[in-house]
Amino acid sequence: MNNPYLPAVARITDIIEETPDTKTFVISSPLKFKPGQFVELSIFGYGEAPISISGGNEKSIDLTIRAVGNITKKIHRMNVGDYVGIRGPFGNGWPVERAEGRNLLIAAGGIGLAPLKPVIEYVCNNRKKFRNVTLLYGARKPSLMLFKYKLEEWSKHMDVLLTVDEPEEGWKGNVGVVTTLCDRIKHVSDTVTLMCGPPIMMKYTSISLMELGFPTGEMYLSLERNMKCGIGICGHCAVGGLYVCRDGPVFSLNDALKLIEKPHEVQGVID
């Protein structure tokens, strides 16, 4: 009998320091995944945590992890060669195919850029499939921006709009929350929006985009919940009768708004 609770043992093959509190771990796990899916990362002796996949190839997956909880703080103290466990991939992933032949807006806040990175990379490799593409990315400070070394390449393929809450020396870009960038997006109609960030960022970005006339039926949000099992049983990720681990983590804004137990991410979006 197949045991879905059993992780596959894998090794950390590389560690990239992204920011003072975030690192990308390259894990020797040849998983086929869809952009937006997540894995359950095991640190043996510490437990499991759900982590979005931020990239990968035939041999490995990338997990971009901010040190905030027990598991994530522990992996930050681990080294190349150390062993971890992987279960997954889980979740529905981003509906990237819906954006093909149309405009695409990718809106990310903070660590929320990690699950969107595979989408951005897909766009870069398949640029002709999409019309206008914009990446909107906000971070607390310039030093906390993820994947800075990729931004130049990405900006060859799409409009990259960046903002920070607090500027630091040398920052010449926009200052303010993500919503302050919304009216700089050059394409409104026929745009598919993929969004991931802190609940408050997703809420206000949704409101701003709706006010600007972005089609709400084509706005998708990735919800963060504490999935313990990843397979729709443990109950921890349940929201309004849906399981974020199986029915999500990506929900259309319209569906999220219809939930009886309205997720914080969309509370007050239509009232």
């Binding site: 043996f44 002796g45 437990g47 099992c229 443990c234």
Partner: peptide, 30 residues
């Protein structure tokens, strides 16, 4: 509902992964 935990020996070199009942009424649940 359940929580998933690791229980280890004193030096952490071996242990077991277990699930234990959990409750949606508890503060930390969500």
């Amino acid at each position: 509902c359940f929580d998933v935990k690791d229980m280890t020996n004193i030096d952490g070199s071996a242990g077991e992964r277990i699930r234990v009942w959990d409750s949606c009424h508890l503060y930390d649940y969500a």
